[in-house]
Simulated assay, not measured.
Amino acid sequence: MKILYFGDVVGRAGRDVLVGRLPEIRQRLSVDFVVANGENAAGGFGITEKIAEEFYGAGVDCIVLGNHSFDQKEIMPYLEKDARMLRPLNYPKDTPGRGASAFKIRSGKSILVMQVMGRLFMDPLDDPFAAVEKMLATAKLGKKYDAILVDIHGEITSEKMSMGHFCDGRVSAVVGSHTHVPTADAQIFPGGTAYQTDAGMCGDYNSVIGMEKDEPLRRFTRKIAGGRFTPATGEGTACGIFIETDDKTGLAKYIAPLRVGGRLIECWPETA
């Protein structure tokens, strides 16, 4: 199975590059399943139903969120009815929506996608490791599911990497999100799980993690807030991760970064 994961989509620049380039990318890489993190898609904070439908129309199969899951209040009822959109699994029990969902691809194979949020320098949620362990107690790779993807949304590289090793051999891939900068550690762990600490973002990199520079600089240099953060509006780069799994085991046999458009050096997986 060929899986493509896109990092946090930030504002209109991120939406435009994702929606504009995705059909070409899916065709060129013969992708079976696409996941995109949409938690910053609506003006940098949350996502709306309209934006979600735009993503699905462009070829996204699953949208994952994060700490900005509920910034747009209108999304709460949509989360309840749309099994393709996931908020972190380790939110409290009665939180709207779901943290994991299973999908069938055209070939009939199945993929389970789950998202958890880290706890270091993030909201104090339930234990993400316990949440994943509970899911994996019954979600068996290569038996119940042909592929399993875990998104860990967090600030700290060590927490994300620990989740990767925690899941090694039991899931197809563990991918980090939230910090908006693509890391250079794409690899397959000894047990066969593909891993990258952060996928980066889809957005304008002439910015501070996707936001116009003036306000972040003001806060760092003067310690005074002058207004809201607003997404940068220059040409966006789509940053993602391409993963290919073994049809027999569900474990990874290839992982590589993808970067197209905007300011960053273009990078395509070798299978392209």
Rank of each mutant, 00 (worst) to 15 (best):
F45L: 13
V60R: 09
A194N: 05
E74F: 08
H68R: 09
K2M: 08
P190S: 11
I63G: 07
G226P: 01
I63R: 11
R98F: 02
V19W: 02
L258Q: 13
V150P: 02
E80W: 00
E74G: 12
A186H: 15
E53L: 13
A58S: 15
V175A: 10
K50C: 01
F55P: 04
I25P: 02
T179W: 13
V113R: 08
M1P: 07
N206T: 11
V150N: 06
F121K: 08
I148E: 03
T237G: 00
L217N: 07
A102F: 11
Q27A: 12
Y145D: 00
I63A: 07
D123R: 15
I243F: 15
V171Q: 06
G262F: 09
G11E: 07
T179D: 08
M114K: 09
R218I: 02
G108T: 06
G97M: 13
Y254D: 15
T95K: 04
I148C: 03
L136A: 05
V113K: 05
R28S: 03
L86R: 12
F6Y: 13
I105Q: 04
A252Q: 10
M114F: 15
T271D: 10
H68Q: 09
P269W: 14
Y5D: 01
V60F: 12
K93A: 15
K93L: 14
A238I: 12
P96N: 10
R98H: 14
A52T: 13
L112M: 10
L264D: 06
Y91L: 10
M1V: 11
G169A: 07
